[in-house]
Design a protein around this nucleic acid. Structure first.
Lengths: 229, 229
DNA sequence: GACATAATCTAATAAACGTTAGAATATTAG
DNA sequence: CTAATATTCTAACGTTTATTAGATTATGTC
């Protein structure tokens, strides 16, 4: 019969396992990426810019902690978050880190707070303006991620396609660009390009995970489209 | 000028620092304890049953991540959570762990779910019943923790005092006992004792941190009483 | 069946971490 | 000032973890 102390140690030890899992920057990046849509090992490795072997090892840890689940389809193993609560937890952990760590604030300022990329727009206002057609909301992520879930009224233009599809964007409306969240830079690049071409463009720092945590609605296309391998 | 990838790596790296901090069971226990009230190094070491030296080392890590702040008063250094958000984060991390880790569920069941300690009572109902005087809510933590914040209508009877103060508890009312939270065992012990003596007693798993996260009110005595050294 | 691709497993190394003991610092009490 | 208490710092040990390379398994295609 274990003592009180032994039981308590075991309980805290188990929670610490979650801590150990999110103690690795690459695993956090995986949670961020998997919050967008399910992905194969190779895709995750490419997006996070690490080797497939290392990605596989990290995924093993995430799976052992049941934060990530998998399904197999032919040659490919698709990984997804085991629960929406995992995505919410990532958002909360990032929020705490942003608030507590001066170093992170400094790093974020370096690339987010360029003077004109400001976000004077409230989330609820954005939703309303988009519904009324006053602004164009553009989702810059790969199409598979858009299909798996996106902001209401958003239009999918993957960053690689932006230049080609410029002509289809009306010049008389403001454009709000978003991507995977505050640590993603696709929206920044898009805003820079759009401004160069004379559009009124600004970034929204949120991604779908932040939007969901804020209690706002997310739209998804019928069946979740598998990510291109 | 750092590349996009370098900046992104740095951002995830910073969040992983929070993960590293909560990757240790003793540090988590410290967050749980400091969520009750500020405490000295020695007090924390005693409560968590580790050496003062080790406690000091863990506190250094918590301080470096700015999750814990200190004030010095004479010989003693009092440690406290740097922000209520830290306590909320601990509650969220524990909730995710409880939900995702089968091992934790098993360990919790071992000591929480003894058949009669069930908690069929909803938090809001408890508040209402306590206001109406239908039940007695007893806080079993040390008095300093009670003073630093407690459930409304709760009465402080530290576990060590319970036997002595039994006579002052009415036998015709149900007693609800709570302590530091789901990982704390003081309320369990109290319920066992009370039932042996013929009281109707049950446990509430919440502590003040869980109560606060649920958006319910917490009362505190005027100035936060310093913990006894 | 042979081959290419996707993913995992095993083993090995270097870095990071928890823990302990001993020395050092700061503050109060006499 | 000296003694006692509270806390931190330094150094050292053993363990765990991230990462890489090489071998292995599973699936689909020719």
């Amino acid at each position: 019969m274990p003592s009180n102390r032994e039981i308590r140690n075991a309980l805290f030890e188990q929670v610490a396992r979650i801590g150990k899992v999110i103690a690795s920057p690459k695993r956090l990046e995986f949670l961020d990426l998997l919050g967008q849509s399910e992905k194969t090992v190779e895709r995750l490795a490419r997006d996070a810019e690490i080797s497939v072997k290392l990605a596989s090892a990290h995924l093993k840890v995430l799976k052992a902690a049941r934060l990530v689940a998998t399904r197999k389809d032919g040659k490919y193993v698709y990984h997804r978050l085991a629960d929406p609560a995992v995505s919410a937890f990532w958002v909360h952990a990032r929020a705490l880190a942003e608030e507590r760590l001066v170093e992170l604030q400094a790093a974020l300022r370096e690339f987010v707070t360029e003077p004109e990329h400001l976000r004077p727009i409230r989330r609820e206002d954005l939703l309303e303006l988009a519904r009324q057609g006053e602004i164009i909301v553009v989702d810059l992520r790969p199409q598979a991620e858009f299909h798996s879930g996106h902001l209401p009224c958003a239009r999918s233009i993957p960053l690689a396609e932006l230049e080609r599809q410029l002509a289809s964007l009306p010049r008389d409306k403001a454009i709000v660009a978003y991507c995977r969240g505050p640590f993603c830079m696709m929206a920044n690049k898009a805003v820079t390009l759009l401004r160069q071409r004379g559009y009124r463009a600004q970034r929204l720092e949120d991604g779908v995970a932040e939007w969901r945590v804020a209690g706002l609605p997310i739209e998804a296309e019928g069946a979740p489209a598998p990510a291109a391998p």
